[in-house]
Design a binder for these strands. Structure first.
Lengths: 232, 232
DNA sequence: ACCCCATCTTGAACGCGTTCAACTTGATGG
DNA sequence: CCATCAAGTTGAACGCGTTCAAGATGGGGT
């Protein structure tokens, strides 16, 4: 049951000191080529050649071509977190903070729009370790949810007491919705996604405020019950 | 000579009389094998062999392996429509009609749960003709939206006049959400998806009713404006 | 100095989806 | 009866992601 025999570093990847340079080289090359030519048109052979290693060597560090995307996911999340620090430090209004974080997310993703589409396709496979809901993705996902917890915590918004603990995850889900929309967004510079954010944020802001309203308490309750039921 | 009056059937594909039998044979074989062994483990070579044709012949009728899924999509939609007729004939209550249609959709999909997961992955590619939002899918999509128009039309629900024309598409979108949830649902018999439907339907029912409320008119308006803005 | 052995690296080989030039079939009309 | 030709069919070949047996590397124990 407890298999403690393997001396490799914690995460599971063979990332000891010796090969770390090679690993980074391959990863850097791959992500650059993905951004430049797109995912499908970047072959593993081409990555290996450009990085100056053998094909098999890439597979020593990354279980599959998809696993290279996993790294993209983690990096993007970290970039997103950094990018939101100014606006989170400056604003205290809930709507402004939320809009800032959502826009920052799209800002970070924009250079990889074409590539990210394929990334999303791969992530859509439920059995894939790349799914945003999978166990393997739990670290970046939790980091992302924490970001929305910070949006709420640092704001002056008055939120229904029952709703408050659930809200960060709901906001993260709506962020996933925005990203999904963005992936499909074929408008120039994905302007439509910006419209979505600017339109949806005041709406969410209003709904959150309304959640404390007498008439809507039953609805709020119903929503929260449903969320709680569905999350084991 | 003979009085056979069946020149062509479908539109778009090379489906004249002569090859139609072969086409059907390949399609039937493929869908059966997808259901039995899963999509990834069913190779084009295996489909061809089992159907007793050459690999290239399958590509004469279907542009790619993915195009075979397109057919699955269309068939499932038709099955869904048929399956909803009893409940739509019987019920006049909006919530009951909506629940009936959603459950029927999952009923139809259930035998293909494992396969449908991969199907969804493929459909998630925005550039793919298989995307539920793509032009190629517009026929089945419209048929599906029409189903939700019928849910509304045949019901006694009182709906805000501005909301009413937009509602079928919004209901279809929520159905897409249910299917997405179902694809990811790993609970036995996808029981959790059933809970989602049973929880969400009364909620939607309530929200639709509330949309006519004085306090909520601005919110309703805001939602509809957003929807209209985003749909070119 | 020697070897040990985990770590790292290699590239040929496999099965896959897909392509395509060549071939077969059968209805048409001269 | 044959020639024509679009429709239908073939299977070898291509490039891809991936695998794996074999080899290279180099720090540490003797």
């Amino acid at each position: 049951m407890t298999d403690q025999t393997v001396p490799t570093t914690a995460a599971g990847d063979p990332a000891t000191a010796r090969g770390e340079q090679t690993r980074q080289l391959i990863l850097e090359t791959a992500l650059r080529m993905f951004r430049e030519r797109g995912y499908a048109r970047t072959t593993m052979r081409a990555i290996a050649q450009e990085a100056g290693v053998a094909v098999g060597n890439a597979y020593y560090y990354f279980g599959s071509k998809e696993h290279l995307i996993q790294e993209f996911y983690a990096r993007t999340q970290e970039e997103h977190r950094v990018a939101t620090q100014p606006v989170l430090a400056r604003e205290s209004d809930f709507a402004a903070r939320l809009a800032g974080v959502l826009h920052a997310g799209i800002d970070v993703l924009t250079p990889s729009h074409e590539f990210a589409a394929t990334f999303f396709k791969t992530a859509a496979e439920p059995t894939s370790p790349l799914s945003p809901f999978s166990a393997e993705s739990s670290a970046p996902r939790q980091a992302s949810i924490d970001l929305f917890a910070e949006v709420l915590a640092g704001s002056t918004a008055k939120v229904d007491a029952e709703l408050r603990p659930q809200l960060p995850e709901l906001l993260w889900l709506s962020y996933m919705g925005v990203v999904l929309f963005w992936v499909y967004d074929r408008s120039p510079d994905q302007a439509r996604t910006r419209q979505l954010i600017d339109g949806a944020v005041p709406l969410v802001d209003r709904l959150v405020a309304l959640s404390r309203l007498r008439v809507l308490r039953p609805v709020t309750r119903q929503v929260l019950d449903l969320v709680r039921t569905l999350r084991h």
